[in-house]
Write a protein that binds this DNA or RNA. Structure first.
Lengths: 229, 229
DNA sequence: CGCTGCCGTAACATCGCTGTCATACTATCC
DNA sequence: GGATAGTATGACAGCGATGTTACGGCAGCG
């Protein structure tokens, strides 16, 4: 459940520093020293977030960000810009190209961590490995464990992801296609009714501690996780 | 619930970007790369809003907008213009042809979303998923929930849509054909009397918290939602 | 290889929503 | 007051959405 970060930074010292700190924080880190290398890495696999230096040799960071946001494959990836000066002009320009946040050097590891978590939480709350709790039900991605009132609950991988998604997006209805997109992945071809079955299995598992009522059916709309009522 | 957007944009990269972002935001997106293709699509079905590029091959965006506003069938559809530079002259001309808003490239997804919401709210309030409240009655499309003075109220899908439409268009009488058009959809063949029945069911559900008086009958005209009296 | 656990699909059962009708009620006009 | 048009109400049949279960396939593992 740990997110993968791509660091694009030409100064080796800072790159090392970032890689070490982020590695310590539990992220998987992939590093690139130029926009070209970063682009090559992106062809291999997509990270969950990109840390992008403002000043890069060759294509500048802002230009690279623009390219990323123009490409269907990479546009969904949140970007945090690393900029040397706190120039308001740059900040505006950065955010306009689609960057989700920016960070002014020098920055503390603590601040870096906080920004990354905030951005990941905003774009995809289930990517952070913070434990979630509601109504006595607790799900901890770090230990891959679910408990209801302290009692352990066994879940299959899909039910775990499903519950994780719902718990990190509570009080909101999701249709079957939406859940398939966000829990199964957007390029999977699966019957809509499959969602029903996994909801059923999830409820079955939650029955042991009486938490099945947290998964609510909204007829004609989809499903909702709610600790109210 | 979710609005349909028509994107008219010849640059594939920007079209993709828009389609992706808007799709994520929960809108249904139809794309066209030219005014001609857009016109053809409009003959099939009408979107709730049109995002129109200023520069288009063939008929320019401004000319196309003028045509849309000249046609009775499409005149009501709001238009947001996409323009490359912040040229004041273009802005004036765009708004003069009937565009409801305009957006200067490059723009952030956040700003795009805000503009679309604002325009839709103005033209078709029930298309946004903002919560509505009046007289202690609260309806939240995102969570698909209705409460009266905090007490949950159960509604079927049709009653929910009906109440949503009425609450987002308060203090105004709607005839049965109008309600059938806007709540059921324009190409559905249903008896007019059916509206009565659903109004009845809606009132029945609202009685639990004493909110049934918000749905008022206007003899010979139709129904009205009003928090006054 | 057999066992085990998980997954996706299909088939069936069930429940609730929906549209229509018949009937009772109410307002308006003469 | 009676006639008439408009509206409210309750019952009902049909159907679609959802719940539930069973089964076959498949990957991991000993």
């Amino acid at each position: 459940m740990s997110a993968t970060l791509l660091v694009v930074e030409d100064e080796p010292a800072i790159q090392e520093l970032l890689a070490y700190n982020l590695g310590q924080a539990g992220y998987r880190v992939v590093a690139a020293h130029s926009a070209e290398q970063a682009a090559a890495l992106l062809r291999e696999s997509l990270p969950d977030l990109i840390l992008l230096d403002w000043m890069l040799p060759g294509a500048s960071g802002i230009e690279f960000a623009r390219r990323l946001k123009a490409d269907a494959a990479t546009r969904a990836i949140p970007i945090i810009m690393l900029t040397a000066r706190g120039d308001e002009q740059d900040k505006i320009a950065g955010l306009e190209t689609g960057a989700d946040d920016y960070l002014t050097k020098p920055f503390s590891p603590r601040e870096l961590g906080a920004r990354i978590k905030a951005v990941l939480r905003r774009r995809a709350p289930q990517m952070t490995d913070d434990a979630v709790e509601a109504g006595g039900l607790r799900l901890d991605p770090a230990t891959h464990r679910v408990t209801g009132n302290g009692q352990p609950i066994e879940l299959g991988p899909t039910e775990f992801r499903l519950l994780h998604y719902l718990m990190t997006h509570p009080e909101r209805v999701y249709s079957r296609p939406q859940l398939l997109d966000r829990v199964w992945g957007s390029h999977v071809f699966v019957e809509e009714r499959t969602v029903d079955v996994h909801i059923r299995r999830l409820r079955g598992a939650l029955e042991a501690t009486g938490h099945e009522c947290l998964i609510q059916t909204v007829r004609g709309a989809g499903y909702r996780f709610s600790a109210k009522d």
